[in-house]
Design a protein around this nucleic acid. Sequence first.
DNA 1: CCTACCGATCGGTAGG
DNA 2: CCTACCGATCGGTAGG
Lengths: 198, 198
Amino acid sequence: MVIRDQILAEATRRFAARGFDATTLKEIAEGVGIRSPSLLYHFKTKDELRRAVLEKLLSHWNDVLPRLLRAAASGEDQFERVAQEMVAFFAASPDRARLLVREVMDRPEEIQALIASHVLPWTRLVCDYIRKGQAEGDVQSEVDPEAYVIQVINLVVFSVATLDCFGALLEDQPSHERVWQRQTAELLRVARQSLFER
Amino acid sequence: MVIRDQILAEATRRFAARGFDATTLKEIAEGVGIRSPSLLYHFKTKDELRRAVLEKLLSHWNDVLPRLLRAAASGEDQFERVAQEMVAFFAASPDRARLLVREVMDRPEEIQALIASHVLPWTRLVCDYIRKGQAEGDVQSEVDPEAYVIQVINLVVFSVATLDCFGALLEDQPSHERVWQRQTAELLRVARQSLFER
DNA sequence: CCTACCGATCGGTAGG
DNA sequence: CCTACCGATCGGTAGG
């Protein structure tokens, strides 16, 4: 059963890096030391492999969700904690962000369904929290809760997916670490400043 | 010469919608009413067609740039004008945004070079403007100018590229027009509120 | 601008 | 898990 996971890991890396169509079963198979017909024993078709990769990503996400919500529910710094958790989830492996970007671009209808089932319930919760903040005067009244949440998700996912590309704009000798720090800090600042009343 | 432009337009649409690898010369050719060998008379290879498509996009951008800078240089509402111009450029044809996203994902090194030559000089100007605003107390001192500009570009490009995907999160019966309005308004608000001092 | 055709490579199958 | 092999399709060429 370990070979199955090796295939999934290799496929995730390749799909994220070069896209589903540009990745061949041969290179995935030989990346884990087998031939492509052997790969097709574990996953009957290339598309089944793609769906399995996506499923694993989403199940990971479902594991993290409760922790995220606990963080949001309790005490202060709710915003900071949720935002940090979200950034951490994608930062832990940027392939997740890249894979999502590719799916959004290549199969918008399919990803729409996944959004409806996996993130819509969650965004509703966050939107309620934002509206409560607006009623209490902590959150700017001009905020459009749903649109705001979408923009923040956009910001996090695409920042991670395109990190390496914009290093040259930031520093003369961009180190992955420094670029990541500056981008994350600014991302959180932008999200925070456009939400809370001062 | 008009057929060349037809090919470019068709290729732009297809590359933006399904990606370079997933698009065949046959479908582009027959989209403009010719056979694929005839297409290869106008563009010797598929990769030459890709580069021509990208070049056309960038030359369009270079035409818009001066107007953008004039808008920024004169009078008040500098921020509002530049931001509006940028949004308008991509909104005029979302394929531009989708194409850029795909290139960033598929050929990061190549797009890095284009960024260095086509957007780095421009971001420097904007960053100078931001720093001047910070010195005068109009702009929040916590803003990291370079990182801020990158995040705003991210926000604009990816908002346009993924517009249709997130309609379901916004409204029960999402119309393209309404979704676009809400997303754009919130995008500009987020950018504005995280920049200026109040 | 076309038809005819090329080698290479793709995802997938047969059979062991 | 392998070798051997399949039809389909790809980008590209020859020749007119």
